[in-house]
């Protein structure tokens, strides 16, 4: 039941991507409309038929998508939101009612995960999204076509980065297949003995923060550090994986707070606010980031074991 429902939601998600491809293709002001359309068409196709074709072919499609983004051919185009005044008028008219569909997504997802445990939060997210769409359709009286247009607008805005989490998971599984984790953990084993739980927890949390600071991306750090440090020194030592995993990722976010590499969060806002010191945002965040990092270590050590 769960697998079937999820498969249906994957097909719907794939359709969103294919509709995006069509809107990109029809966007005459788009400088690279063919390549952008191809990218979203491939992504959608992987969602819908990927399960039934050889996995190597899916891998090849992903490499082709990588070539398109490397050549900077996957871009936004000219799909437009409503004018400022129109949005303000609509907000004044709808008042807090406008939050109802948006909240529906989260509430339904949590409800399904909690009550129908066999279905899980992902099926819940699917139902939440469908319910929210129906409610919004009734409330705003917008046509289904407009939903397709605005969904495409958002997906084009998020851009190719939206496939990054999945690619990082794939990278993690290549690292596992190639034995990268063993090499890193072998190196650390010289310093840290297996079974030293506190040492492992510190290495995992601090490793996440440091690696995130270097790369500016906690998601990428998570794939690498979990394979190298988390597996042998934390999970293998019997940690509760949900707790250790959740804390490891947010330990990485402590690193995000302290690095100019995370330009979107730390450097761009400083420029936007016209601060005198261009590292002002980072300076404001370092004390709290360090306090949180220590809290992560304590929580993981006490709560996950």
């Amino acid at each position: 039941m769960k697998a079937l429902l999820l498969e249906i939601f994957y097909v719907l998600a794939g359709l969103v991507s294919i509709i995006t491809a069509i809107h990109a293709l029809r966007d005459e002001k788009h400088p690279h409309r063919n390549e952008t359309a191809l990218f979203w068409f491939l992504f959608g196709a992987i969602f819908i038929i990927g399960k039934y074709i050889p996995a190597a072919l899916v891998g090849a499609m992903l490499l082709l998508m990588g070539v398109l983004t490397a050549m900077k051919r996957v871009t936004f185009g000219s799909l437009a939101n409503a004018a400022d005044e129109v949005r303000q008028q609509s907000a004044d008219r709808m008042k807090n009612k406008i939050f109802v569909p948006a909240l529906t997504i989260g509430v339904v997802a949590f409800f399904v995960a909690q009550v129908f445990k066999s279905l899980g939060g992902l099926v819940g997210l699917g139902f939440g999204a469908v319910a929210a769409t129906v409610i919004a359709m009734v409330m705003t009286k917008e046509k289904p076509k407009q939903f397709g247009y605005d969904g495409s607008r958002l997906l084009l805005q998020v851009g190719s980065a939206s496939i990054l989490p999945q690619l990082l998971a794939a990278l993690g599984s290549l690292f596992a297949a190639a034995g990268v984790g063993e090499v890193i953990s072998g190196g650390i084993a010289g310093v840290l003995s297996e079974g030293n739980i506190l040492g492992g927890v510190i290495a995992y949390c601090v490793g996440m923060a440091l690696f995130t600071m270097i790369m500016g991306n906690a998601f990428a750090a998570f794939a690498v550090i979990t394979a190298g440090i988390g597996m042998p020194f934390v999970y293998a030592a019997g940690a509760n994986p949900a707790i250790a995993g959740a804390l490891a990722l947010t330990a990485g976010y402590c690193g995000t707070l302290m690095t100019p590499m995370a330009a979107n969060f730390n450097v761009v806002p400083a420029a936007l606010l016209e601060t005198k010191n261009k590292y002002r945002v980072i300076i404001s965040q370092v004390p709290i980031a360090l306090a949180l990092l220590v809290t992560h270590i304590v929580l993981m050590y006490v709560w996950a074991f």
């Binding site: 992987i46 990927g50 399960k51 050889p54 996995a55 190597a56 072919l57 899916v58 891998g59 090849a60 499609m61 992903l62 490499l63 999945q166 690619l167 998971a169 794939a170 993690g172 599984s173 290549l174 297949a177």
Partner: peptide, 9 residues
């Protein structure tokens, strides 16, 4: 390619 494709699916 197979490992990447499988993980992605």
């Amino acid at each position: 390619l197979t490992v990447i494709g499988e993980a992605f699916i």
